[in-house]
Design a binder for these strands. Structure first.
Length: 522
DNA sequence: ATAGGGTTAG
C-alpha cells in the first residue's frame, strides 16, 4: 500500500514543518516582530494549526493589539481551551473584567469545557473590581465541575475572598487546596494581616513549611499596616536576603508614621548595602523628602533617579512635583509637571495642591481650568486643593463658587475635608458666623479637623464664645488635644479675662486634670 | 500558545 505510506510520510513531514513554523512564529513574536510573524502565518495556511493561531493571538495581546487579536479569534476555524484562555488572559491583562466576563460566558455556552487555568485567569481578573461579587459563584462552579482546586485557582480565590472581607471563605479555600506551595501560605498571611489578626499571621509564618521573600515582605507590610512598626523592623533586620520590595516596604513604613528622618536613614543604609532601588523606592523616598522639607536630599534623590536610568513615569514625576512643591520650590515643580507627557488626575491635583500651599489661588485656578480643558475630570481632592487655595488667598466668594460648583457641576459630594477648608476660609476672613452656620448645616457631625479650623479662626480673631464651642467640640472627641489649650489661652489672654470662672476655664481645668490622670497611668 | 502572593504618586 504505497499510497498510505506516502501519506504517512507526508503527514510526518508536514507535522515537522508545523512545529518549525510555530517555532519561527514564536521567535518573531518574542522579538517584537509581529508583522513578520503574521506574514509567515498568512503564507502557510496548509501548515498552521491551532497552536499557530493561539500564538499569534497571544502575540497581539502582548503588544496591546486587542482588536487584531479579537479579529483573528473570530476567524478561527477551530478553537481549543487554550484559545479561549488566551483571550481571557489578554482581556485580564488589558484590565477589562467586563470582556473577561462575557468571554467566559461565551466559552461556557459555545466553547469547550473550562479548565483550571480558565478559572485562575477569570477569578484573578475580577480582583478589586465590581465583578468580584461573582467570584463565590465561580468558586461553586469549580467545585461542581469537579475541577481541581490547584494553587493557582486557590490563591486567586483567596485574594478575592480577602477583597470581599470574607474571612471564612479565605480559610475554606486554603483548606480546600490539596497540594499547597508557598503562595497560598503567603496569601493566608496577607489575609490575616488585612483582617488585623497579626498573631494568626505570625503563627502561619512560623509553621509554614517554606518561605520566600514574598512571605517576609507580606508579614513586614502587615505589621506596618497594623501599627506595629517595631515588629516590622525586627523582622526586617532578621531577613537574610532583603530585596527591593522589603527595603521599600520598610522605608514606606517610616514615611507612613511621619518618621521621615528614619526613612531617609534607612534609604542610605539600603544604598550602601548595594541594593538597587527602583521607581517604587524612589517615589517613597521622595515622599520622605517632601514630608521633611528636605530639598537638598530631594535634589540628590532626583539626581540619583536620573543617573539610575529608570524611565520617568507619571508616578515618579508626580512624586518629584510633589516633593519640590512641598519643599518650597514651586517653579521647579511646575517645570517638571510640564514635562509629564500624559498628565493624569493625580498629577494635576499635585500641581494644583502645590499652588494652593504656596498661597497662589490664581495659579491654582489656571491649572484647574487647563485640566478641565484637557478632558480630565476633577475629583474630591481637586476641590479640596482649590478651596484650600482660596483660603490661603483670602478669596471668599471664589471659594464659595468652587464649593458649590463641585456639587452642582461635577456632582461630587462635599466631604468633611471640604467643609473643614470652607470653615478655614471663612475663619481666616473673619466671617465666623458663616463658618458656624456651615458647620450647623453639615450633613455629618464635625470632626477634630473642622472644629480645629474653627478654633484656629477664633484664636486669630479672639472670639471667645465660638472658641468655647469649638474647644468643647474637640474635647468631646479627643480629650487630650494640646492645641486646644494653647489656642484657648491665647484668646483668653487677648480678652484680658483673668479671674472670671467661665465655663471655659472649668473646661481647661478639667482637661488638665484628666491629662494628668492619663499621665500617671504610665 | 494560556495561570497564583509582596513595594510607588495627589
Amino acid at each position: 500500500m504505497p499510497e498510505l505510506r506516502t501519506f504517512a510520510v507526508c503527514r510526518q513531514i508536514s507535522t515537522l514543518s508545523t512545529i518549525n513554523l510555530n517555532k519561527t512564529i514564536n521567535s518573531f513574536i518574542a522579538n517584537g516582530n509581529l508583522k513578520e510573524a503574521r506574514k509567515l502565518f498568512d503564507q502557510s495556511p496548509h501548515l498552521r494549526n491551532v497552536v499557530s493561531w493561539n500564538s499569534i493571538i497571544a502575540g497581539y495581546f502582548r503588544y496591546s493589539c486587542i482588536q487584531q487579536a479579537e479579529y483573528l479569534f473570530d476567524e478561527m476555524p477551530h478553537r481549543d481551551v487554550v484559545s479561549w484562555n488566551t483571550m481571557l488572559s489578554g482581556y485580564r491583562n488589558a484590565n477589562n473584567p467586563e470582556k473577561v466576563y462575557n468571554c467566559f460566558l461565551h466559552m461556557n455556552r459555545y466553547g469547550g469545557r473550562p479548565n483550571e487555568l480558565t478559572f485562575a485567569v477569570a477569578i484573578s481578573s475580577f480582583l478589586h473590581k465590581d465583578f468580584k461579587h461573582l467570584v463565590p459563584q465561580l468558586h461553586g462552579l469549580v467545585l461542581s465541575l469537579g475541577i481541581s482546586l490547584n494553587v493557582f485557582v486557590g490563591s486567586a480565590l483567596m485574594r478575592v475572598y480577602i477583597d470581599l472581607n470574607d474571612y471564612k471563605g479565605l480559610a475554606r479555600v486554603f483548606d480546600e487546596i490539596l497540594v499547597k506551595d508557598v503562595t497560598p501560605w503567603n496569601v493566608l498571611i496577607l489575609g490575616y494581616m488585612k483582617f488585623g489578626c497579626t498573631s494568626e499571621a505570625q503563627r502561619a509564618f512560623d509553621m509554614m513549611p517554606m518561605r520566600n521573600t514574598f512571605t517576609w515582605s507580606t508579614l513586614i507590610n502587615g505589621y506596618i499596616e497594623n501599627n506595629k512598626l517595631n515588629e516590622a523592623r525586627s523582622l526586617f533586620d532578621k531577613m537574610s536576603e532583603k530585596d527591593v520590595v522589603s527595603w521599600t516596604a520598610m522605608i514606606r513604613g517610616y514615611v507612613q508614621y511621619g518618621n521621615f528622618m528614619e526613612a531617609l536613614k534607612l534609604f542610605k543604609v539600603m544604598l550602601s548595602s548595594g541594593a538597587r532601588p527602583n521607581h517604587f523606592t524612589f517615589s517613597t523616598v521622595l515622599d520622605a523628602c517632601a514630608g521633611n522639607s528636605a530639598v537638598l536630599v530631594g535634589n540628590q534623590v532626583h539626581a540619583c533617579i536620573l543617573k539610575s536610568g529608570f524611565p520617568l513615569d507619571v508616578v515618579l514625576l508626580t512624586s518629584l512635583v510633589d516633593m519640590y512643591a512641598k519643599c518650597g520650590d514651586i517653579d521647579i515643580a511646575f517645570c517638571i509637571f510640564e514635562s509629564i507627557p500624559e498628565r493624569n488626575l493625580v498629577a494635576w491635583n499635585s500641581i494644583i495642591g502645590g499652588y494652593a500651599r504656596h498661597g497662589l489661588p490664581e495659579r491654582a485656578m489656571q491649572e484647574f481650568e487647563r485640566m478641565v480643558k484637557s478632558g480630565i475630570r476633577p475629583d474630591e481632592i481637586t476641590f479640596i486643593n482649590l478651596v484650600y487655595a482660596c483660603g490661603h488667598g483670602g478669596l471668599v466668594e471664589e471659594g464659595e463658587r468652587i464649593f458649590n460648583s463641585m456639587v452642582t457641576d461635577y456632582s461630587l459630594k462635599a466631604e468633611m475635608e471640604h467643609y473643614a477648608c470652607m470653615v478655614d476660609l471663612y475663619g481666616k476672613a473673619g466671617q465666623l458666623e458663616k463658618a458656624e452656620r456651615l458647620i450647623e448645616g453639615m450633613p455629618f457631625k464635625p470632626d477634630v479637623v473642622v472644629w480645629g479650623a474653627l478654633l484656629g479662626a477664633c484664636g486669630l480673631h479672639s472670639c471667645l464664645e465660638l472658641g468655647e464651642i469649638a474647644a468643647n467640640g474637640i474635647y468631646t472627641l479627643e480629650n487630650d488635644h494640646p492645641a486646644v489649650y494653647s489656642v484657648l489661652s491665647k484668646i483668653y489672654g487677648d480678652k484680658g479675662v483673668c479671674s472670671d470662672i467661665t465655663g471655659l476655664e472649668k473646661l481647661m481645668k478639667n482637661w488638665r486634670a484628666r491629662k494628668q490622670k492619663a499621665g500617671s497611668w504610665i
